[in-house]
């Protein structure tokens, strides 16, 4: 029996690599992105990859895709979080940058979960993987990092709330996403923080990257290693919700605490009663 996967952000980088890997493993892949040319490249010579141009910040558009595909067995949400220039600190970012990051990060993830999770619950099976990468130059800004943290917290809460109903939830702490305390502020290590926007991995360790799109995984963890970490985690159904590619234990420990306690209540208030 063929399984269906929905992959967002499939036009480039992590999402494209995830879509191709699933296609190689003979899944029916529904590849979603706003970048039509990128989608075409992902689906090239892959008869079991089906492309859909869709803006995942639009709840109805995502619901329409799911209405067409029917229940999917796996979701890899890898649509990038769009925000400002990663070279700039928070106060120098353009106005509205944080809103954009929350919309393309948090809102998009909520849209995808709300569209895909009901089908998984009906089937009593599914794998929901949330791993939106930073949009520009493969590096986080304060706002895109915060939006990613919101996605992680939401994923943690969803995992708790729907535990025991057959759906495996994974949230991926992408390289460089530290929920920073002052002592964790990036210094020399910052160059390691890029997550590639392409599946090529072999580049010399990063130096002097401009703000133009990060090819490959300049100085960062290659996307294939991120996908390996996700695969390993899914192989243990009862495993931890958190996936930490390349193993960065300290930030992982910090994130793990988010969904419990106050952050969860804040989220509950934000999303309000239905």
């Amino acid at each position: 029996m063929r399984r269906t996967a929905l992959v967002t952000g499939a036009g480039d980088g992590l999402g494209a690599a995830a879509a191709r890997r699933l296609a190689a493993a003979a899944w029916d892949v529904v590849a979603v992105d706003t970048d039509e040319a990128g989608l075409a490249a992902t689906a090239l010579r892959s008869p079991n990859t089906h492309v859909r141009v869709c803006d995942v910040t639009d709840a109805k558009a995502v619901a329409d895709v799911l209405a067409m595909t029917g229940p999917v067995h796996r979701v890899v949400h890898a649509a990038p979080i769009v925000s400002g220039d990663p070279a700039l600190p928070a106060l120098e970012q353009p106005p509205g940058e944080a809103d954009e990051a929350m919309r393309t990060g948090f809102t998009a993830a909520v849209n995808v979960v709300r569209a895909a999770l009901p089908g998984m619950l009906d089937q009593g099976a599914g794998e929901l993987i949330l791993c939106p990468p930073p949009g520009r130059a493969g590096r986080w800004t304060a706002a895109s990092g915060a939006a990613a943290a919101a996605v992680l917290a939401y994923a943690g809460a969803v995992a708790d709330e729907y535990a025991g109903r057959g759906v495996i939830v994974r949230r991926v702490l992408l390289p460089g996403l530290t929920l920073m305390t002052a002592s964790e502020a990036p210094s020399k290590d910052e160059e390691r923080s890029a997550i590639g926007r392409s599946s090529e991995g072999e580049t010399p360790s990063g130096s002097g990257r401009s703000s133009e799109g990060a090819r490959a995984s300049e100085g960062g963890v290659p996307v294939r290693l991120v996908l390996d970490a996700i695969d390993r985690s899914l192989a243990r159904a009862a495993g931890a919700v958190d996936v930490v590619p390349g193993g960065r234990p300290v930030p992982a420990a910090l994130v793990r605490r988010i969904p419990a306690g106050p952050a969860r209540r804040v989220l509950a208030r934000m999303s309000g009663p239905r």
């Binding site: 690599a17 191709r20 890997r21 296609a23 190689a24 493993a25 003979a26 090239l44 010579r45 892959s46 008869p47 990859t49 599946s199 294939r224």
Partner: peptide, 12 residues
């Protein structure tokens, strides 16, 4: 072999 990215598409 897992062909993840190549001219013949993705396959095992």
């Amino acid at each position: 072999v897992r062909y993840a990215d190549g001219d013949l598409g993705p396959y095992h």
